[in-house]
């Protein structure tokens, strides 16, 4: 089974944080490669054939953003970003630069491992994502453009389908406002955030059991949305 052990590159300058990440990731069945600085990380990402990179945005030698861009320039490997709270702008920047998701520091290890699992799973099954989405109270078949709620047919508009498909393509991970607006409405609407507010409300009304306590169509305040489906 050794071949199935994914290699995770941890780019983080604090040795104490690297330690518990190493312990927890090893326990999770990963091979861990550690880099304490950005330049080291860019080399290690290639030589160790990493399957996933966890990148801290605050590195001593260069901006974590540069590491993300450098890796993205040659590899589609999933990239998870570690960033401090209250830095929505840098989270968005990292996501737009090609990161797949972020975990906010300080974090509990369970939260990070969940993101690692999602990222590794998506790597194994890329491109389209799921085509049948199972919600608590509803079911949507993106390919056949069919939806039902508690056994009864449910009408979704073409744009609602398209928005859901964009979220499903990143299932479990965050989609930024800009990404969704560009993919659903086109580049001319990349700043029309209110379109998303209106359509997400419609979707929650149709698909969530309690739209005010959504379980699947989650808001990441200031950044975007995340579709979470049960496994």
């Amino acid at each position: 089974m050794a071949a199935l052990r994914p290699t995770v590159l941890v780019v983080e300058d604090e040795p104490e944080i690297r330690r518990f990440l190493r312990l927890a990731l090893a326990e999770e069945g990963c091979r861990v490669v550690e880099a304490g600085a950005g330049r080291r990380a860019m080399i290690d990402a290639g030589t160790h054939k990493a399957d996933l990179a966890i990148v801290d945005l605050g590195l001593p030698d260069l901006d974590g953003m540069e590491v993300i861009r450098a890796i993205r320039a040659w590899s589609p490997m999933p990239i998870l970003v570690l960033s401090a709270r209250a830095q929505e702008r840098s989270k968005i920047e990292a996501l737009d630069a090609g990161a797949d998701d972020y975990v906010t520091k300080p974090f509990a290890i369970g939260e990070l491992l969940a993101s690692v699992r999602v990222a590794l799973r998506r790597r194994a099954r890329p491109v389209t994502g799921d085509s049948v989405l199972i919600f608590e109270a509803a079911r949507v078949d993106l390919q056949r453009r069919e939806a039902s709620r508690e056994g009864r047919a449910l009408h979704l508009t073409p744009l609602e389908f398209r928005l859901l498909a964009c979220l499903a393509a990143r299932s479990g991970q965050i989609a930024t406002h800009r990404q969704l607006l560009v993919e659903v409405w086109g580049p001319a609407h990349e700043r029309d955030t209110h379109y998303l507010r209106i359509y997400m409300k419609q979707l929650r009304g149709k698909l969530e059991r309690d739209p005010l306590r959504p379980r699947h169509l989650l808001t990441e305040i200031g950044v975007g949305y995340r579709l979470v489906l049960d496994d």
Binding site: T193, K201, I221
Partner: peptide
């Protein structure tokens, strides 16, 4: 930016 109170609340 345009924001929904429902989303902030949840």
């Amino acid at each position: 930016d345009w924001t929904s109170i429902e989303e902030l609340a949840s």
